[in-house]
Design a protein around this nucleic acid. Sequence first.
RNA 1: UGGGCGAUCGUUCAAUGGUAGGACAAUGCCCUUUGGAGGCAUUUAUCCAGGUUCGAAUCCUGGUCGCCCAGCCA
Length: 568
Amino acid sequence: MTETAQENAGVRTVNNFLREQIAEDVRNKTYGDAPIQTRFPPEPNGYLHIGHAKAICLDFGLADEVGGKTNLRFDDTNPEKEETEYVESIQKDVRWLGFDWEKLCYASDYFGQLYEWALQLIRAGQAYVDDLSAEEIRQYRGTLTEPGKDSPYRNRSVEENLDLFTRMKGGEFPDGSRVLRAKIDMGSPNLNLRDPVMYRILHATHHRTGDEWCIYPMYDFAHGQSDSIEHVTHSMCTLEFADHQPLYRWYIEQLGIFPSHQFEFDRLNLTYTMLSKRKLLQLVQENRVSGWDDPRMPTLSGIRRRGFTPEAIRAFCASIGATRTNGTTDIEMLEHFQRDDLNRRASRAMAVLHPLKVVIDNYPEGKEEMVEVQNNPEDASAGTRQVPFSREIYIEQDDFREVPPPKYYRLSPGKEVRLRNAYFVTAKSVVKDATGNVIEVHCTYDPASRGGNSPDGRKVKSTMHWVSAKHAIDAEIRLYDKLFLKPDPYDFPEGGDLFDNLNPNSIEILTGAKLEPSLASAKVEDRFQFERVGYFCLDPDASPGKLVFNRTLPLKDTWAKIEKKAGA
RNA sequence: UGGGCGAUCGUUCAAUGGUAGGACAAUGCCCUUUGGAGGCAUUUAUCCAGGUUCGAAUCCUGGUCGCCCAGCCA
């Protein structure tokens, strides 16, 4: 086992090449005695999602392991897509995940410096103002297989370039009329080196700098230098930026500034999950979901509301590691880590989602008693609570079958089962409605089995949850399923659409659920295991008179599997 | 088609020239006052062909396949 493995609280961290790179640089003192510095650099143009969580865990986690520092930097170089709402949500989400930054930075903090550097490159004859239109630039760029050709404006004098660029900044020219380009190599096999655009004219109001600027640096002209300004030693990004690395280095070398280095790792892909910010925005804008924090969304705000925990997400990220191979992780992996975490920590409660009335005929009418129940069998320190029991209770409709199929252990006529922490009961008869549906089951109970065990040692095959009818509280329960029907949401026929794969039944709202009374005091984000059903948390939509619970995940269901196999 | 990157159980991640291993999933059994949890067991992998070496997943050569790049997005 070569896990670099701090194994704490069940978190198993697998080794990865980024950690090794950092360890090597620390060993070799590549950056002298300066601490390792990383950064998490989101563009504030949307909400963070589970894919970002992987990057966050890497950026913050790897630096932290070696006593390094991490900045949160907003890559806000495109005012047309960025908003303050997003910078706020991003900070909230990073903190929620459990990380805190050394410095809060913005690429826009560096607009002045970047402008000076652009001037420096112009003076060095390494940048020029191009009057070609966007369309012409595209044509001059060539193709994957053919080299590009020089713009007719490529050899303007330094003086003219300085004059034009200054006037670009001064607002003299309309959007799109000119750009500043780096003079590199129009014949390069790497398209990023074919005189990349450094600045474009955008008369747009920036969420931070307002109307101070009407020219904005491109990602490539801002990112490496921002890293450099912050003395970032290890600039980690996803694989699709690998082709940009030569340009990243080119700017840093020409400018002669702090040598930050870029390292690329694989982006997270999950089955049944779509992680395109642009498409996620579309889901929100088209009201296909209730918002960025819809519990079906893969955003951090969505899965937080769904009931996922930062601990589970971090454990998941630690286990998937980082490589340079692009694959797709099974969503079950994430779910596993979430169940594992909640199983250890969530308080248990009894809740009946689809109630069926049970009357215990030999239980004295009007009698009530409290039974003692463990809050968490996995954790004795969680203590116990008292749950009321009485003559009429609710059980799950699924837990009674008039004609039990093979291997069905639950209640059926003549069968004895255990009501969890309460008594053994035996079904005696049923009451049906006009259409023949069972609407009530009559049982007898064994008074000697109080607490759930019979003194004679008699065993039962099944233990079922229940709620006292008289004491039950009502709640709305929201059951969520996958947002997309296919493992690969992009798997749709020619002419089809990503959204054709949307699951029409991704949410089911239950209004008749019956809950044990202790749940009345639940607070938002409190997490519970409704025994035998799943993990749930109180939704922010809940109000004092109205409880609303979200199902985070169902419990694993062996019986469902047996039933499915028998049916197939 | 030019360039870059990659290829290990069904999935994901290890093995850094020396016994191919873990996790998820699946299957079976045990256990259980949650058909949950837990325990045990089982199945399945080094893309192909050559080469170097006592020894290759690892190094070399040649293929094959996959991903990324032709925004004045990031």
